[in-house]
Simulated assay, not measured.
Amino acid sequence: MYLQLDLQFFAGEKTEKATPKKRQDSRKKGQVAKSQDVNTAILLFFVFILFIVIGGYLKDNFTAIYQKFFTEYINWDVTEDSVHQVFVENTFAVAKVVAPIMAIAIVAGLASNFLQIGFLFTTEPLKMKLNKIDPIQGAKRIFSARALVELVKSLLKIAVVGTITFSILWMRKDQMFMLGGKDINGSLAFFGETTILMGIASAIALLIISVIDYTYQRYDFEKNIRMSKNDIKDEHKNIEGDPQIKGKIKEKQRQIAMRRMMSEIPDADVVITNPTHYAIAIKYDEQKADAPYVVAKGVDYVAFRIREIAKANEVMLVENRPLARALYDGVEIGQVIGEEYFQAVAEILAYVYQLEKKL
């Protein structure tokens, strides 16, 4: 009894790798190995690269907005129409500046997701599930090993990014102290360059961390979708069907085929026997086939039933052991006999027809 319980316990342990079907089902539910840090790192990197490319464009547009505020808008009377015009004009001006950044952010986000999981669209994670608002389940998630890993990872990212940004500012402190002697363009160029440098360095550091995190996420995902031996057996049953049900279906099909075969015996021209082990019912119908064909065949009990039905319906029984054995092995039910059997079967049919005429 204890041995049986131990076997059941081990069979229920999730020690097996997930099957392709399990992976496909998990993917449909939105359960995939994915690191959000990869998205963040790639997004930051490409956004700051974009700042290098369109830095002059951004400076000119923001300077134009600033100048318009303090040279034109400052002289307007505060009315409903003027406020509306200021709002509309600056909304379009800011949108024109933000549009390239939003575009590269969307492209980087889609690309980072595609690199990790390929194309995937599912609404399963958006469905309402009561266990998501269960306080007990929520507490388990908060105080779980995964939550601890996320906390350590967040602290590591804060420490790395903080160290990088402070180091860059410290290395450029002398230039920062000399900004008082520079004009506005020089100061903007310095701060823009420093910001981009900190952003790209932080993005590269986060990308390195994200590779480690992605490796962990894949490990955790593989662990979560592991299957027990019982799970694999159940899945196999669901795919292939329950063996007992399949066996019953096959048995039912055999019974139907047997009844159909037996119903053809009364119309047969002759039954060739072994005489006891084999029985082959032959019929020749010019309208259905160019040669005689097998309407029923069987061994042992089935052969006995064929002989009984043939006798009851006055179908001639002819003993020919080699031919009966050869026809059983070489011709299926409903098939015409092969050329190698033509002469032997023709002689038997001729003999049967002669006897029927005499009778």
Rank of each mutant, 00 (worst) to 15 (best):
N185H: 09
T195D: 04
K182M: 15
M198A: 14
I209A: 10
N185T: 11
G180Q: 04
M176S: 06
Q175A: 12
A205E: 09
D174Y: 07
G199S: 10
K182A: 14
A203V: 03
M198H: 02
L207Q: 02
I212P: 05
Q175D: 14
F177L: 14
G181W: 06
I196C: 04
I200A: 08
L206R: 01
I208C: 12
L207P: 05
W170M: 14
T194P: 01
N185I: 13
I200H: 04
I204A: 11
I204P: 05
L188N: 07
K182F: 12
M171H: 09
A205Q: 07
E193P: 02
F177Q: 02
A189L: 14
K173T: 10
I204S: 01
I196M: 12
S202N: 06
A203G: 07
I184K: 05
I212N: 06
A189T: 10
V211D: 05
F166S: 13
F191W: 13
S167K: 08
K173W: 13
L206S: 00
K173N: 12
G186Q: 13
S167Q: 10
L207Y: 10
S187M: 15
M171Q: 13
E193R: 08
F190H: 03
A205D: 11
S167M: 15
D174P: 00
G192R: 07
T195H: 01
G186M: 13
A203L: 08
E193L: 12
S210H: 06
M171G: 08
D183L: 11
I168H: 04
D174T: 10
S167H: 03
G192H: 08
N185Y: 11
L207R: 00
G181P: 03
G192E: 11
L206Q: 01
F190G: 04
Q175M: 11
F191M: 14
L179E: 07
G186E: 14
G186A: 13
D213Q: 09
E193D: 14
V211A: 15
I208Y: 00
M176Q: 00
A205F: 03
G199F: 03
G186K: 09
A203D: 12
L169I: 15
T195L: 15
I212S: 13
L206A: 05
A203P: 09
G181Q: 10
M176F: 11
I212W: 05
L197Q: 12
L206N: 03
N185S: 13
E193C: 06
I200R: 04
L188F: 09
D183N: 15
I168R: 04
A201K: 00
T195R: 02
G199V: 03
L179K: 00
L197M: 14
L197D: 06
M171D: 13
D183T: 10
S210Y: 04
I208G: 09
S167P: 03
F177C: 00
G181N: 10
A201L: 13
A189W: 02
S210Q: 07
A201Q: 07
I168N: 07
A189P: 00
I184L: 15
N185R: 08
D213R: 05
Q175P: 01
A205V: 10
I212K: 02
F177E: 02
F190R: 02
L169S: 12
L188S: 09
M178L: 11
I204N: 01
N185G: 14
A201W: 01
G180S: 08
G192V: 12
G180V: 08
S210V: 05
